[in-house]
Nucleic acid binder design. Structure first.
Lengths: 148, 148
DNA sequence: ATTTATGCAAATCGTTTGCAAACCT
DNA sequence: AGGTTTGCAAACGATTTGCATAAAT
């Protein structure tokens, strides 16, 4: 656990360094908060989990972390953009259950097999439209357990 | 074509009436603009296609139309929410190609077969999470033909 | 020592809302 | 007439930015 965390920090530091960015205490704190989360978090979620984080710096650092590919922005439809660690770092391709009622978001996965079939179909679509795909996004939108 | 348009207007009128809402000229104009579009439109897109539409009324009417299930909000990640006719009205289940670079959004479809396999898998996920699904959302995010 | 990050306060911008006039039935 | 919709202008709220200070290398 400590091992994984320090490995993660090493990777993040490397990625930041590649773009001449420093791995400061605040940035480390953001990564720690996101790492501990069960799904993508809003800014308020994030600030609520570490009292030392300032709003504007959090936004700025999340932007930097997103730019170097460490953090991924998640737009669900309500205001409040959410943030999660990039799949490249977690090694965990996943999707989201988005609750229309309370706005909560949690993760789920499909079988590797279905994911591959899907990927092939999407590759075909992209090729046909001369579209260069960065990633796909698959969400379920509805009402969560707590809200029904 | 005129037939389809008037059929559409009839359906919309019915749905509005069900919630004691009137089908005014502005609302008709919005439906016409969305009907003619090749993908979901931003407010600016919409206002640009009909000079008589006022900003605040457009927002309000889109909200009403969304509430009665005629219009669907599409959040792509940049600011600028987009709007499209609900699939229930177009009878055309589709997905989106989202360009990270210029923000454009266009539609695509999967085969009926894959769509069904996917639906089954998603139903299983939802059942396992006690999640009541309203709809799913599958997008390709990347760079469009014009931007590459 | 020099460059970069921080955090407060102010600015920005998409969207929403108050309200008086115009509209529909 | 009675209630709804409209559209301007003002308000709102999430996010961004200016700037002087603190931190990192």
């Amino acid at each position: 656990m400590a091992d994984r965390a320090s490995e993660l920090h090493t990777t993040v530091a490397k990625r930041l360094g590649r773009l001449d960015q420093r791995y400061t205490r605040n940035r480390r704190a953001l990564v720690d908060v996101l790492r501990a989360a069960a799904g993508p978090l809003t800014i308020d979620d994030i600030l609520g989990r570490d009292d030392d984080l300032a709003l504007s710096s959090a936004y700025r650092n999340l932007a930097v972390l997103a730019e170097v590919g460490v953090v991924h922005r998640v737009s669900t439809g309500d205001d409040h953009t959410r943030y999660e660690l990039a799949e490249m770092l977690t090694g965990h391709h996943h999707h989201h259950l988005v609750c229309d009622s309370c706005g909560s978001v949690s993760d789920f996965t499909l079988t590797e097999e279905l994911e591959q079939v899907l990927q092939q179909a999407l590759d075909r679509v992209a090729a046909g439209a001369d579209f260069r795909t960065d990633h796909h996004r698959l969400d379920l939108v509805g009402t969560c357990d707590a809200c029904r």
